[in-house]
Structures are given as C-alpha cells and as structure tokens.
Amino acid sequence: MIRDITLGQYYPAESVLHRLDPRVKLSGTLLYVISLFLFQSFAGYAVATVFLVTVIVLSHVPVSFMLRGLKAIFILLIFTAVLNIFLTPGRELVSFWKITITIEGLRVAAFMVLRLVYLIVGSSVMTLTTTPSNLTDGLEKGLGWLKFFRIPVHEIAMMMSIALTFIPVLLEETDKIIKAQQARGADFESGNIIRRAKALVPILVPLFVSAFRRANDLAIAMESRCYRGGEGRTKMRPLRYTGRDYAAYSVLIVYLAAIIAVGILF
C-alpha cells in the first residue's frame, strides 16, 4: 500500500509537460484545483474533464500509473460516497428500514467522489511530470516576493526538496524495518486498536533513529559541499520563460475564461 502513493513521485519521460516551466504548472494546478471546488454543474465537470484528459495525454505518463495513486485513497472515496448518499436530505429515491437514499444524495456523492478523484489525478500529473527539485525551484522563484515579508522562501524550498528526496529512501527503510521485526515474531495485524498502536513502536523507533542519523549525515555532507543558505547561490538551469510557457499560460487563460463562462451560464 505504501508503494501505491504516486503523489510526489516523478515519472521520467520526454513530453511538453515535462519541459514546461514549473511556475506554469504550479499556477495551472492551483487554477484547476480552485475550479474543481467552484464547479457545481455537469457542464463544469465536462470542462474539467476535457482539461484533465488533454493534460494526461500530453504528459506521456501511463494512465495506469496515475490511477494507482487512487488506490491509496480508495477507502476515503467509499467513505465519502456512503456518507453523502445516506446523509443528504432531499427527494426520496429508495427507502428501507431507517435508511433513505435521495436524488440529491446521489448527486452530491457523485460530485464529491469525482472531485476527489480529479484532485488526486490532476495534482499527480504535476508531480509526475516535474522533478521535485524543479518543483521547489518553481516555488522558490514564483514565491520569491514573499522574502520581503521575511518569509525564508529559499529555506522552505530546500526543506521541501530534501523531504521529497528522502521519501523513497525512508519508505524502503520502513519496509526493511517491518520485515526485521516480523522476523522477530512481531505482529501488526491482530488485536484491538491499542495493541496495534503499540505494535508500531518497534517500527517507529528505528525509523526515527535512522531519520535523525540521516539528517545529521546529510547536514555534514551539505556543509562539506559549501552549502550556506540561499545567499549568493546560482542555479545550473535558472528558470526562464520560453515561448512554450507563454503558450501554456494562454491555455490557462482560456481555461479561466471557461470557468467564468460556466459559472455564468449554468
């Protein structure tokens, strides 16, 4: 299950989307996420679907790879759907015992599930086509103006980038720790919640100890390679907008117009 999380993973490929400036992708994702929450109609979702499908096709990332990310939130999806179906008041559709299913309930549930699925798939398109460091570069440069409010933008971006680098390493390590404790007869699957929570201690302690050791090693390695914060730092590939990026921004403006049009018309 841990391996099913696609959010924050990069899928190397040669596509227009991969080459796009991360700031474009960030703004696009932001716009897309906002639009998902604004849309209340099928027309709105049609627009979002067109946008999402286009982006997926352009990304050259296998669809199966993106959908895998949904496995991790499957329970959440079911839970959302069930709650909405049974708890939304409105016109009665079916009724048995104390439970009533309403038309509104089905509608809200469908939207909620769709919204979540689109949200996850949409944002994983961004992370799958953008290397984490590119992403943080984009954040650092795109949000550079926050420095004037004494927000340490570079430091935050660096922390994010390190965290993203270490996710796969720590996931693999967790797997090894679990195996090592299972080999000593540890049981993570039976018992009540308290017992199960207690069973996590033999995993969490080695994981934390290791994470701290790694952090310490990494700090020394970074200092050894002359790291001293963002001051005076250059970039191997400084972010610079090209024609492709302006074209992409135009597409986003069209999308924005579509959102507004849908809002007015439906």
Binding site: Y10, P12, T131, P132, S133, S161, I162, L164, T165, V169, R213, R214, D217, L218, I220, A221, M222, S224, R225
Partner: peptide, 14 residues
C-alpha cells in the same frame, strides 16, 4: 569529502 552512505549525501532527485 565523500562519506560512507551514498544515500545520505544525495541532494537532488536526478
């Protein structure tokens, strides 16, 4: 300086 554990000195995802 090059250290023992290659994983703990990598900064960057490519």
């Amino acid at each position: 300086m090059v250290f023992q554990n290659p994983e703990n000195q990598m900064i960057g995802t490519i």
